[in-house]
Computed example of a mutant assay.
Amino acid sequence: MKMNLKKTWVVCLLASVSCFFWGSAFPGVKIGYAWFHIASGDAAAQILFAGCRFFLAGILVILFGSMLSGRFLKPKGAEWKHAAVISLFQTILQYVLFYIGLAHTAGTKASIIVGSNVFIAILIACLVFRQEKLTKEKIIGCIVGFAGVVIINLTPGGISLDMSFQGEGLVLISTVAYACSSSIMKIYSKTDDPVMLSGYQFFIGGVVMMAAGYLMGGRVMLPDAKGMMMLFYLAFASAAAYTIWSQLLKYNPVSKVAVFCFMTPVFGVLLSTVLLQESDQISLFQGAAALILITTGIIISHRVQKNVSTVFENVPK
């Protein structure tokens, strides 16, 4: 299992699956808002909705992980603290700040800021947590990949350079929080079960977000069967994506995994084009150019992995 998850083609396949699930959440959340009658500017209701989604995701991960391991997954001692810390960065701070910031900035600008999380995650892993070396190939790969994210988000009106702390500032902080969660997960998964950590961080985050959204005045209407199916899918997508991601982070350098996050907005835009009929948002050339740049960035970044991966061979798992 360990050696398979360290193979480049396995990392590529599984990371792409995770990014597909995350990308599918973009149109899925929009559809969910419509079916749950949540207004686009109602941040409190959106946080409440996200809390319901992550609470259910946590239950799914815990149940599925328990079935696979043959025992009920439950944190013991310090594991509760570890799950809470990951939840603070991965779920609570990331999504609460993102939804509040998104209400005060354009979606295109928010997408580009979120797209920078790859570069931020690698910088944090290299410079803050000292988990790996920062190389010029990683920097170049991130810059090339980020260029693809910018291209996929370009609109006829261009991108405004106006910035505000309540808008772009909060989105950026949410991105930094998510980037930190990757390094924190890698640290804790050396001794803790990453599936267990994933399940309980979602569970804790979901409870906190539901409470926060409700106290902020958020309310959601009970939907029909198709609305509940969409909520279940969004929960399943989060559960599957982050469970896979946490396993990859356990056995690989953060940079080797994180660079695939550039694929998430591509999947998001392509699936939005199909599911939301947003065909006027991007051109075929735009999508192709973005995909080429992102793929090139991933290849450049992965050129150094064989040289630095030996640093992690003797790390206790």
Rank of each mutant, 00 (worst) to 15 (best):
S246Q: 15
S182H: 06
L222D: 09
K190W: 13
Y233P: 12
I184K: 10
V176Y: 11
G169T: 01
R219N: 07
C180V: 14
L127C: 14
V254Q: 13
S246P: 10
F232D: 02
I151P: 05
E137F: 14
F146N: 04
F203S: 00
F260L: 00
A235F: 12
E168T: 04
A147S: 13
P194L: 03
M209G: 00
M185T: 05
A212H: 03
I152M: 14
S160D: 14
S174I: 11
F262K: 01
T243L: 10
I244Y: 03
I159Y: 05
I140L: 14
I204K: 00
L154R: 12
G148S: 12
N153Q: 06
G158V: 05
P156R: 11
A258E: 12
A241Y: 02
D224I: 01
Y251C: 08
G213A: 02
V195L: 14
A235G: 15
I143K: 06
A225N: 05
V128A: 12
M221S: 12
D193A: 11
F146Q: 05
G205L: 04
F203T: 00
T155M: 06
A212I: 07
T191R: 08
C142R: 05
Y251G: 11
V149F: 11
V144A: 02
L215R: 05
M228Y: 14
T175M: 13
I173S: 07
G167R: 02
I159W: 11
K226Y: 09
D192P: 14
L134E: 08
S189P: 07
D224W: 04
I244F: 02
G145T: 01
G141F: 04
I184F: 04
C126A: 11
A212P: 06
Q247F: 07
V149R: 05
A240D: 10
M216H: 09
A147I: 06
G213K: 03
Q166G: 14
K138G: 11
M230R: 15
G157L: 11
Q247K: 04
F260Y: 00
E168P: 12
S255R: 05
D193L: 10
C142S: 06
Q247G: 01
F129H: 15
Y188R: 01
G227N: 10
G206C: 08
N153G: 08
D162F: 13
V207N: 07
K138I: 08
A177Q: 15
V220E: 05
L222F: 10
C261H: 01
P156L: 13
D192H: 15
V149N: 09
G217C: 05
V144N: 01
E168G: 06
F262A: 01
V257W: 03
C261N: 03
V128M: 15
T191E: 03
F260D: 00
S238P: 04
V176N: 09
M229R: 10
L127Y: 12
K250W: 09
Y188C: 04
Y214T: 07
L249P: 11
L215V: 08
S164D: 11
P194T: 06
G205W: 00
I184V: 09
L172E: 08
Y233S: 14
Y214S: 07
I244G: 04
I204F: 00
T175H: 06
R219M: 04
F146P: 09
